[in-house]
Design a binder for these strands. Structure first.
Length: 490
RNA sequence: GGCCCCAUCGUCUAACGGUCAGGACGUCGGGUUUUCAUCCCGGUAAUCGGAGUUCGAUUCUCCGUGGGGUCACCA
């Protein structure tokens, strides 16, 4: 049998990083088994529908490097893949259940239901449930109500005191008694199905074999099992996945601690490979000690057996940051350059490269890439390669503790650099000369080189001084020294 | 509150009855480096508690505790 998995987002808000995790598992399981990964839009909630959300969701899934075999934009044998376009089907199925006596019409107003719940709460009942008022309506009353155009919903007639047992591939056997389940609404009064009805019908019609979803769906799974039984269909394999939380404590993933929306991680300058690699381990582990996994590696090794049984998994932002830096370091310079430009273009961010040549920019990258954890670190790390300002004298003399000496150092370097032939402006030669200077003048390496570093970059934490000196070029280095000397001399 | 699920270093986790309880991130220390970062080496740190089963429990069972989820005409 062909393995078919699906991801079924709702266009009610931003697609967040946890959704990507769930999507990744579904995707990988299908690919691993040469099956199909289906994307379906569950837009049955008209109240919370957000304009444009469907496109944003589809785009971000693509941005993360995933595609789907069937679904919106690509079609497939079970079109349409958008629930709001499948309304007729749901209604027919619901009415079919009524005919079979497994569901019933309910004409109760939302006010009555609210009052009912309120009363039950006051009485201190352990759970609030529909009182089945409409279950005792006679066929005549029902017909009359419908003829009068009274609004109605269709409810599932949940059998009394029956243990629903289903097997979860991660959790094992789960047993829930029907007494704890309400007579679930299947068809809303606006003619739209509820999630419970739609998901069962669509998963069946689309021949979904494995349902992987967040563990928050576990308590409603028996309702779905009941529906499969009512229709006489086989249930899919259920796989409930742990939810994500912030590091430490039991806080839900929250914007307070960083990005949550999938798009925001990209905007911040995370690489998709790093993101996907990191997310793989949020609920799964290969058992070995290897941690750097490509998507293909993951597809090869992913298995349901190794999905974690825990209910919450911490989203360790520090580790993600480390992993992103790792991926950046392992890209070649040109690769980083290309990523940087695509990223800047996509999010309309200025790289502040001052129209320098590609060649120059790539060399800059080669010098700073070990320090980049995010693409967005680039600008902060490289300002002095593109523009320069006079450095305040207090800073210049930070290491000499003596303004006159600092000035003297600059003058000496300037004098020696002036005599270097254009062709000899390479880092080995510069290094030689640097050491000649400190030897001749008796400077300590630290005071001389740190003073030069600060003047050239206005920073005390930079890549190797000779690398910077070489890349900046003789002309620019002399210019900066001249201007600084002049400024201090005044 | 009812129901359901879960429980190993600070964090993510490995172990499928017998290990000095392993790895990674973080942290701390050291080395490389004129600075920062990278890189390399090393240290730190955990089986929630209590009963059982067993020659032997992180591992199996039960109870407790803790945490989470869910109880809508939302998904």
């Amino acid at each position: 049998m062909e393995i078919r998995t699906r991801m079924a987002p709702s266009p009610t808000g931003e697609y967040h990083i946890g959704h990507i995790r769930t999507l990744l598992y579904n995707y990988a399981y299908a690919k691993k088994n040469m099956g199909k990964f289906i994307l379906r839009i569950e837009d049955t909630d008209r109240e919370r529908y957000v304009e444009g959300a469907v496109d944003r969701i589809l785009d971000i899934i693509n941005d993360y490097g995933f595609s789907w075999d069937e679904g919106p934009r690509v079609g497939g044998p079970h079109i349409p893949y958008v629930q709001s376009e499948r309304l007729d089907s749901y209604k027919k199925y619901a009415e079919d259940l009524v005919r079979k006596g497994l569901a019933y019409y309910c004409f109760c107003s939302s006010e009555r239901l609210e009052n009912l719940r309120e009363e039950q709460r006051k009485k201190g009942l352990t759970s609030t449930k529909y009182d089945r008022y409409c279950l005792s309506l006679s066929p005549e009353e029902i017909e009359k109500n419908i003829k009068e155009n009274k609004k109605y919903v269709i409810r599932l007639k949940v059998p009394e005191n029956k243990d629903i047992i289903f097997k979860d591939a991660v959790l094992g056997e789960v047993k829930i008694n029907t007494n704890d389940i309400d007579d679930q609404v299947l068809l809303k009064s606006d003619g739209f199905p509820t999630y419970h009805l739609a998901v069962v019908i669509d998963d069946h019609e689309m021949e979904i074999t494995h349902v992987m979803r967040g563990i928050d769906w576990l308590p409603s799974t028996p309702k779905h099992v009941l529906l499969y039984d009512a229709f006489g269909w086989n249930t899919p394999v259920y796989v409930h996945l742990p939810n994500l939380k912030e590091l430490g404590g039991n806080k839900k993933l929250s914007k307070r601690y960083g990005s949550v929306a999938a798009i925001d991680f990209l905007k911040e300058g995370y690489l998709t490979e790093a993101l996907v690699n990191f997310i793989m381990f949020l609920g799964w582990n290969p058992g070995g000690e290897k941690e750097i996994y490509s998507l293909d590696d993951f597809i090869n090794e992913f298995s349901l057996e190794r999905i974690h049984k825990t209910d919450l998994v911490a989203f360790d932002r520090q580790k993600l940051l480390w992993m992103n830096g790792y991926y950046i370091r392992n890209l070649d310079d040109l690769g980083i350059y290309n990523r940087l430009r695509k990223w800047a273009e996509k999010f309309n961010i200025s790289l502040n490269m001052a129209d320098r040549s590609d060649d120059y920019n790539i060399k800059v990258i080669s010098l700073v890439k070990d320090r980049m954890k995010l693409l967005s670190d680039f600008s902060n790390l490289t300002g002095y390669f593109y523009k320069w300002d006079i450095v305040p004298k207090e800073r210049v003399s930070e290491y000499t503790k003596d303004e006159t000496k600092a000035l003297e150092i600059l003058v000496n370097f300037h004098e020696r650099y002036l005599n270097i032939k254009e062709g000899e402006w390479v880092k080995d030669r510069i290094d030689e000369i640097n050491h000649e200077i400190i030897k001749d003048k008796g400077y300590s390496p630290k005071e001389a080189f740190m003073t030069m570093r600060i003047v050239l970059t206005s920073s005390s934490a930079t890549p190797s001084l000779v690398d910077i000196t070489e890349l900046l070029g003789k002309k620019e280095v002399l210019l900066r020294l001249e201007r600084e000397i002049k400024s201090i001399s005044i």
